[in-house]
Simulated scan of single mutants.
Amino acid sequence: MIKEFREFIAKGNVLDLAVAVIIGGAFGAIVTSLVNDIIMPLIGVILGGTDFTTLAIEVGEASIMYGNFIQAIINFLIIAFVIFMIVRTANNMKKEEPPAPPAGPSAEDLLTEIRDLLKARN
């Protein structure tokens, strides 16, 4: 059982997935910092000093923090756009495969042609 587990872990796709998760987490931290520390303050200045994280509605004793929700939507849109740009760039960088050469006659067609030529000679 240990041997099977080692073989499973050693497969390339499992290791690739682990690396992708780690890099994705680090990338998420970068994008979150970009949004929280650069983009949202600029949007706040444009909107007259509004800090979205403090926006809330009080309902009884509960606070509905809709500003955090707005922040999460903006984070998602920026992350989705950046990922779109990365995938688009990667797809554009791939080499286009040359078109397949035209298929020649099959072996059966060639044998039929040879037979017909031999019949015509006799």
Rank of each mutant, 00 (worst) to 15 (best):
I43K: 01
G24V: 00
Y66D: 02
I70R: 03
G67D: 09
L15I: 14
I39W: 02
E7W: 11
N36F: 05
G28V: 02
I38A: 07
A56C: 02
I22W: 02
I22H: 05
A20T: 13
N13E: 15
S33I: 06
T53G: 12
G28C: 02
V31S: 03
R6V: 15
L17C: 12
A20I: 07
G67S: 06
G48H: 08
N36E: 11
D51K: 08
N68Y: 07
N36D: 15
K3T: 13
E4K: 14
A18Y: 02
A18H: 01
A29T: 13
T32D: 15
L42T: 04
V31A: 00
D37G: 04
G25T: 05
I22P: 02
I73A: 12
E7R: 13
G12Y: 11
M1R: 13
N36S: 11
V59N: 07
V59M: 12
N13M: 09
R6F: 15
I46D: 00
A26Q: 04
I43R: 02
E7I: 09
L15R: 12
N36L: 07
I74A: 06
L42M: 10
K11H: 09
G28W: 01
F52M: 08
T53V: 05
V21E: 09
I38Q: 06
Y66H: 04
L47F: 06
L55I: 03
L47T: 08
V59R: 03
I39P: 03
V19T: 13
N13V: 09
A72R: 01
I74Q: 07
D51C: 00
P41S: 01
G25W: 03
L55H: 11
I30H: 00
I2D: 10
A29R: 09
K11W: 05
G49R: 04
I22F: 11
M65Y: 09
G60H: 08
F27D: 12
I2N: 06
N68L: 14
